[in-house]
């Protein structure tokens, strides 16, 4: 055997084991811009590609905080249906995310979320994905080998005109149905309710909740910023519950849950009493004012 052939064979033999190193899935960061100027905004998107069906992913998007600042995080139109940890800037740095897609997804170019960065310093900014995990939709949560592709952005000295990355979204979030439940494993078996709205534009920013028993004085109840699951204040389930989903562009969608146990006539006695007292007070005050005006 000639030496040349021996060398070729030695080089090719390791490729016999290639399949064990083939990545069936890939998570990558896409950016339309490789170079930006200071003050300029740009979008990077986290994309997953997989031949096998995946149903859960998590990871951390890391970036140099001295060079980049997060302006906005967009998860509208994401392949992830439920966030365990919605992508948010962490105090320790980076953006942590974790979520699932019941039933699974495969195929190329599945959008997970996007970040609008603003360049604030000159240099080379490496935006990387770390601690990434993708699990198969196989009922056992088997780990799928994942190749990771990061991106480098070159930030040059810029002009004074900062270019904004704006997104036009006038559509409200989609209809959603909150569900009331209780379980001995959480909240000391108290009633709570769960909700999850989808928004195909800018993504859901937050939810607000309002509970009230009397529609007439519902204006006295305040909207409270809430997260699902939310422990109900009215554990007797006599209140109407209103949930407002607000997207990142300020569009709103409201869902209402009727009281499970509507109020009886005698439940209205206190409020009728208060109204009567208020009415009498008004009449008394009005009479006093009227008498003073008389000559």
């Amino acid at each position: 055997m000639s030496t040349k052939i021996k060398i070729i064979l030695l080089l090719l033999l390791p490729t016999l084991f290639t399949p064990s190193f083939v990545f069936a899935a890939e998570i990558r960061i896409d950016s339309y811009k490789a170079e930006v100027k200071i003050g300029e905004q740009f979008v990077v998107a986290v994309i997953v590609h997989s031949e096998k069906q995946l149903n859960a992913i998590e990871g951390r998007l890391v970036f140099p905080e001295d060079l980049l600042s997060v302006r906005e995080i967009r998860d509208g139109n994401s392949v992830i249906n439920f966030w365990i940890k919605k992508p948010q800037s962490e105090s320790l740095g980076g953006i942590v995310f974790s979520g699932i897609t019941p039933g699974g997804f495969s195929d190329p170019n599945n959008f997970v979320f996007a970040v609008v960065f603003e360049a604030k310093g000159e240099g080379a900014a490496a935006v990387t994905l770390q601690e990434t995990t993708a699990l198969r939709n196989d009922g056992a949560g088997t780990k799928e080998p994942l190749s990771v592709h990061n991106v480098n952005i070159v930030i040059n000295p810029g002009d004074s005109n900062a270019r904004k990355e704006s997104l036009s979204d006038t559509a409200p979030p989609e209809d959603f149905t909150p569900i009331i439940a209780r379980d001995q494993n959480i909240f000391d078996d108290k009633y709570f309710f769960v909700f999850a709205a989808q928004d195909k534009g800018s993504g859901i920013d937050h939810y607000e909740v309002k509970e009230f028993r009397f529609a007439l004085i519902s204006f006295l109840s305040q909207w409270v910023r809430a997260e699902s699951p939310y422990v109900l204040k009215d554990q007797e389930l006599k209140s109407r519950i209103v949930v407002k989903a607000i997207d990142n562009s300020g569009n709103e969608r409201i869902a209402t849950i009727a009281p499970r146990y509507p109020l009886s006539w005698y439940d209205h006695i206190p409020i009728i009493g208060i109204l009567i007292v208020m009415l009498i007070s008004c009449v008394v005050v009005f009479k006093k004012i009227w008498r003073r005006r008389l000559p």
Binding site: A56, T101, L135, N137, G139, A140, G141
Partner: peptide, 10 residues
Amino acid sequence: LVDFSIMAFY
């Protein structure tokens, strides 16, 4: 995440 993946399958 593994528990959530199992839940997502069922």
